[in-house]
Design a protein around this nucleic acid. Sequence first.
DNA 1: TCAAAAGTGTTAATAGTACACCCATGA
DNA 2: TCATGGGTGTACTATTAACACTTTTGA
Lengths: 227, 227
Amino acid sequence: MAPKAYYSIHPKFHVSVDCIIFGFEDGELSLLLLKRNFEPARGQWSLMGGFVEEGESTDAAARRVVAELTGLNDLYMSQVHTYGAPDRDPGERVVSVAYYALVDIKKYNRELVDAHNAFWVNLPEVPPLIFDHGTMVEDALRFMRYQASVKPVGINLLPEEFTLTQLQTLYEAIFGQSMDKRNFRKRIASMDYIEKTGRVDKTMSRRGAALYRFNPDKYHEQSIFKI
Amino acid sequence: MAPKAYYSIHPKFHVSVDCIIFGFEDGELSLLLLKRNFEPARGQWSLMGGFVEEGESTDAAARRVVAELTGLNDLYMSQVHTYGAPDRDPGERVVSVAYYALVDIKKYNRELVDAHNAFWVNLPEVPPLIFDHGTMVEDALRFMRYQASVKPVGINLLPEEFTLTQLQTLYEAIFGQSMDKRNFRKRIASMDYIEKTGRVDKTMSRRGAALYRFNPDKYHEQSIFKI
DNA sequence: TCAAAAGTGTTAATAGTACACCCATGA
DNA sequence: TCATGGGTGTACTATTAACACTTTTGA
């Protein structure tokens, strides 16, 4: 049906995925970055990435690459943008699809991360990155902020059960601005898909704070603009 | 520096671009689609696409492909999403980056469009498309709507000078809902970057309607969420 | 008893929505 | 003179933003 020549007169390129892995700890967003002890660009900082293999979708490649580093398989992930400048990788031509992932920072596999010479770096302290990885981070952060403003993706950065103070600190970190506690809690109260578990966290205060969880069944996308 | 083996053990794929080309006429959004008189999938409907060539960025490939069909070089274009399922093209593996373009439908080159056996099709009447092109159209429409809700990209579908009635009809077509004339004009009046030219359009009414233009200098992105 | 975090309502400002008539013109 | 599309303002509703004190409890 499709004549071989239709395809074969055109070039082929390596296709890679690069992953912007967000975590949240101590009131700060952080990124999981590699201090590369391998070529190319040994000694420099980069995102975790990898090549798309035969028979593997780009989405699957991104999940594989993130699991390889963190040991985590069911993360919230989203495609951000594709970077296709011919000289973006000085070695060979590589078209790269960027994805972001949200990780509960308590859960990643420390041995794997150490084995990859990877480190959690607070967002304001992110060092210069190789190639166009710095741009990827900017784009991913902007896109993640947007998504967090229209749907509760941020919750993927917290444990299953969380206090409202934790949730507010998270949103303040995501949007880089402090919020009014009463208005914030009023807004959360109007979201029936964020529900009290009945349990209480006593680690942060004598009094204890109610624990909440996200109920995905009660959550149905209402936004017109699903992106 | 980068050992050749680092790259060469990984597969290469064809990379293509597919373009969702929006136009606006008679109060309706329309798409420029190919009725394919070439393989593969001869006889079926598809988006205009093409392979990314050596030394060419994906963005440049998208512009080239759209110019090839329409003769237009300075269109508003935006990357939408990348489609990387291994079997999305039944012929060979092709990773495709989708872009949308906005065209003033009065300006395209009719000879080129005819030569490609392409047609403007009103959105509600878009036929089934090959491969995953139907999904691409849905995603592009959703994304274009989102962008139109946060910045005045829609204006690229109109001539340089337009009446407020034209502008309202356009927005009604984009969002698929009718709008109140007074509220609409109030909103436009608050946008200082949409300015009266002083000229009058007499083609649609005896009285004549004031013509407006978009002033890009007065327009500065104020949105936090630049996507 | 006190330090430290959790929890709780009201008011003002702003933005958004609903709604109907007069105007200018050429045929 | 009349048919046609162009143009205009006000009142109501909903949403968002500002703001400070009381509660609980273990040390």
